[in-house]
Simulated scan of single mutants.
Amino acid sequence: MQFDFTTLDTSTYVFVGTLVLGLVLAAFIAAAAMATLALVGAGSLAWYTVKNVLGGLVRGINFAWDLLVHQTGKVELPVEFPSQTSPSTGTYPRVALRDS
C-alpha cells in the first residue's frame, strides 16, 4: 500500500508542521538549558577555585605576619630611653613597645 501525500488535507499539513516546529523549539530550549547549566557550572568552579586560592594566600600572609610579630616580640632591647619634656603633658618616659 502506497501513501499518497496529495490526498492529505491542508489542515493535516498545518498540524504536522506545528508538531515539527514545536519539536524544533523544544530541542533548541533544551540545548540552551544544557549550555546554561554548563556555563554556570564552569563559572561556579572558577569562582570556587579563585576564592580558595585567594583565601589561602590571605591565610598564609596572616600566618607569616603572626610569626613575625611574635618573633620580634621576644627581642629584648638593652637600651633605656631617657625622659623627654613635652610642652603640653610635662615629662614622660619613652617605652619600648613589644607584643604582650
Rank of each mutant, 00 (worst) to 15 (best):
F63C: 02
S83V: 06
N52P: 00
Q84P: 03
Q84M: 05
F81H: 03
Q71C: 05
L8S: 00
L19M: 13
V95K: 05
T72K: 06
F15Y: 11
G56S: 12
V20T: 09
Y92P: 00
V75S: 01
V20K: 10
V16P: 02
H70T: 00
V53P: 03
E76V: 13
V14Y: 05
V79S: 01
A31K: 09
W65D: 08
G90T: 04
I29A: 12
L67D: 11
A32I: 07
Y48H: 10
L19C: 06
T36I: 02
L39C: 04
A42M: 03
S11F: 09
R94D: 04
T10Y: 12
P93F: 00
Q71G: 12
R94H: 07
G41Y: 05
S11H: 10
T7R: 13
G41Q: 14
V24R: 06
N52L: 06
D4L: 04
L39E: 14
L19D: 07
I61M: 01
T6G: 12
Q71A: 11
T10I: 14
P93T: 00
D9F: 00
Q2R: 09
F28L: 05
L25W: 02
I29N: 04
A31S: 12
L77Y: 08
Q2S: 13
V16E: 11
H70Y: 01
A26T: 08
T89C: 02
G22E: 15
F3I: 14
M1I: 09
G55P: 05
I29F: 08
Y48A: 15
S44V: 07
T49R: 11
V75W: 01
L57M: 06
A30K: 10
T12V: 13
L23Q: 15
T72H: 03
S86R: 05
D99S: 05
